[in-house]
Design a protein around this nucleic acid. Sequence first.
DNA 1: TTTCGGATCAATATCGATTCTGGCGAGTAT
DNA 2: ATACTCGCCAGAATCGATATTGATCCGAAA
Lengths: 341, 341
Amino acid sequence: MGDDRARLNLKSLARHLDLSITTVSRALRNGPEVRKETIERVQKAAAELGYVRDVGGLTLRTGLSYSICVLMSAVPPDDIADTGSVGLLQGVHEVAQAAGYAVTAVPLAPGADPIEALKTIIDGRRADGLIFDHTLPMDPRVRFLLERDFPFVSFGRTELFTPHAWFDIDDEDATYRAVRHLLASGYRRICLINPPTEFMFSQYRQRGYRKALSEAGMEIDPRLMLDLDLTARKTRASVKDLMVQESPPDAFICVNDITSLGMMTGLRDIGLDPADFGFCASTTTRLIEYVEPTPVSFYFPLQEAGRRLTRLMLRRLEGETDITQLQELAVAEMHVPTRRR
Amino acid sequence: MGDDRARLNLKSLARHLDLSITTVSRALRNGPEVRKETIERVQKAAAELGYVRDVGGLTLRTGLSYSICVLMSAVPPDDIADTGSVGLLQGVHEVAQAAGYAVTAVPLAPGADPIEALKTIIDGRRADGLIFDHTLPMDPRVRFLLERDFPFVSFGRTELFTPHAWFDIDDEDATYRAVRHLLASGYRRICLINPPTEFMFSQYRQRGYRKALSEAGMEIDPRLMLDLDLTARKTRASVKDLMVQESPPDAFICVNDITSLGMMTGLRDIGLDPADFGFCASTTTRLIEYVEPTPVSFYFPLQEAGRRLTRLMLRRLEGETDITQLQELAVAEMHVPTRRR
DNA sequence: TTTCGGATCAATATCGATTCTGGCGAGTAT
DNA sequence: ATACTCGCCAGAATCGATATTGATCCGAAA
């Protein structure tokens, strides 16, 4: 019924209301040059007819696409994905949506060049801002985006001199608290299972680890500081080598939910019971509540991280120029499992 | 250096090459009206200068945005996300990227109206095609998209009369095989843990369950057919009620990785050992390889599902009109865990 | 020589939204 | 009465890419 009528755009809307395109455009954005009654009339008609602004026309004219792009680090096939990534996306979407922004996701395969991806997004005007994680000290993505002066918020800090917008979880603090907790529980050979040292958050974790041990007057055994990758598979395989050492660890600190699983399974593989070890983990989901034994965890949900990242992003897009106002550090919450039996 | 020169677009590229905008545009798309040497010259220059087509201009003129939108069903906060969803996105991106398409993700909050989201995407010309999961028999999204004649591929079948493009995992078959496996192992009271019956795949699972039991000449106890939701929390809580029945189950079939975890933890909560029960699960990740005891699983990776969905999508966008050619059913692969000790 | 047709390229209109410039009427100061 | 401001609205240019139509050149056929 009437489906062959012209598409609903500013032109047809203006004709319908007997106004000019200009006025309708301004009225929809509450422009000060339009009378209040006219604004109401226009917005009412737009809502009734279901007018949706064409993103093509908008982008062409203004250069804005009203969408935020999330660069997600993908996982090698057949390994377990980071369980929280959808949560992150969800958090981003939640805040972005409310501000009229769409969310674009680019899962970046392990080997792919991130700069190429950035160029396509920026030059093709596919997004107004970028969010990405797993920062490096001299992160090439941050450098590139700073150079291009393109809005972004990184999930993680860098060591670059130029300040930029970031949100981060305080991994140094979480690791520090984990070590202290394990020491207080009587463990003496605490193993830190970390992602590759090139990642910033890996370095912060080492810092917290060293600080807590030094404060306790203990030696640091480099053999207890592992840098693996973020997969369950690798962690699982590495545990075996770790345990045949002269003096193996009696406790573990894992970097996330998934490596915790890998570590536990690795122990079981060689006939050991994870319950006999001290165990702390940084987590972004409640997954480890469902495994036995449940470790003490330092929890910060990725969904909330997504929300915070996006709020910073929106402030940046709204013209906040004081970059130091766009840096936020969050503390993870300690969860001690209740004994089951 | 020279950063203040005009943006790189067809106009500046044409001026640089001393050709018309038209010719450059056609040459970049290998148009038949352009001489081969000219095409080469244009494409070489475009690659060297790093020309990227402006998506705004493209969308405005052609109505195409060269992006595919994935509607993801989000998870209630503080529950565990479906671990595979990023894998799905990854699979979609992999295939879409290679064909020049970007991927947009819309995580849909549990209560949100999907049709509103669809309208914004379609009317705002934000995507050329849609992918979504968790179909219902009379799925309103499918109906809406069919009515609008908008390209989509659903992850899951429907019972609608009009044929449409879909990809699905054969849940009936997986459940059938699971029941037969458990029966052969000597279990007699097999519990089917399912998502709400309104989902199509839940119904297929019930069908497979009934079929296997009937063939074995066994009664069907409706108390053993649970329809919960897809969260670990709910499953965990429901196990207790289930086990205080007069004749409780001796085996479980779970719908995915996460509900498997919930079920196992629920058993432990009331002092039971999951190892004393029969246990099969449909899975889309290798997560359950890392829990003890590892169930027999029927595995189909979501990443591959994403790839297949997108291949169907691309064929649809390239003009395939025979819809029956765009329907694909995949069989899950049975994984039997190797005994550990 | 003229005409025709294919090959190759160019001029121009167009998509939808924003924005710059300007018009018009009413009210006010000079 | 004239000039000026202000509130409200309209006309037309513009963004970048594509499609339609038209122009030009060259060789072959009449």
